[in-house]
Nucleic acid binder design. Structure first.
Lengths: 128, 128
DNA sequence: ACTTTCTTTTACGTAAAAGTCAATTTATTG
DNA sequence: CAATAAATTGACTTTTACGTAAAAGAAAGT
């Protein structure tokens, strides 16, 4: 039952360097345990790394990723904090919707390009 | 019929600095005309800027954006080039689909957070 | 015990994408 | 036409997100 992951295990799984994982720790995004000086990653850390890399693929900065991770930490007890959090969630959702729209637009332009390519191919085959 | 846009007009429209637009020109992404030394942007440039910023929001690098823009320039005549281009289109589509999946995943996690917040709010209102 | 492999810390380096500043030019307008 | 505003280039700086190298401690196989 493999309780811990080593750093290289995770670098191999996710295709990142040890430097990157240590950097994320420095940034306070993950908090692996220690045996002596060696880092021991648990599956919670592993899951967080997934989230981080997902954010990275979407072009979020480390700070934005940090915000998202903070959000995941679950709802706080106090009313004011709750309302603040819901505002933040709405904000992130807005950013994500914008990105989604950007993706749809780009994909549809790629579709046009593809069609144009196919048309040109057909022409070539006929031997224009 | 407003044939040209000035640089500041476009910086205002898109919320970027003049330095940024000049940077994109240096990178060969846009090619505004010149009257003397002053840049004159046409709507084609304006449209390109939109594409660039869209790519930027999605976390593409300048080089990746350049690739996308190259793709938009329309299908080439020669067969080999055509096939190469279709490969590139497929590649970009793959990246975009990954990003879209990332967005869906993140949005659905935000939904969970939101629900948790609402639940907690309800509790508070009852006065737990 | 020896070697190999992993891991650590510390510190400096770097590429990308602009920001900032200074010194000019050019354009506009009262 | 002098003044002011807007635009230019060029050089230097900054921020982000790591890369890389050095030096050394620890673990594991032979």
């Amino acid at each position: 039952m493999h309780k811990y992951f080593s750093i290289t295990e995770l670098t191999r799984e996710f295709g990142v360097s040890t430097r990157t994982l240590r950097f994320y720790e420095d940034e306070g995004l993950i908090h692996p345990e220690r045996r002596g000086r060696t880092r021991l990653f648990r599956s919670a850390d592993r899951h967080l790394i997934k989230e981080i890399l997902r954010g990275r693929r979407l072009g979020f900065t480390i700070n934005e990723i940090r915000e998202i991770i903070e959000i995941y930490k679950g709802p706080p007890g106090e009313l004011g904090q709750l309302q603040l959090m819901m505002t933040r969630v709405a904000e992130k959702r807005k950013q994500l919707n914008q990105k989604r729209q950007d993706i749809e637009d780009t994909l549809s332009e790629l579709d046009h390009v593809d069609e144009a390519c196919l048309a040109r191919l057909a022409e070539l085959r006929v031997g224009s």
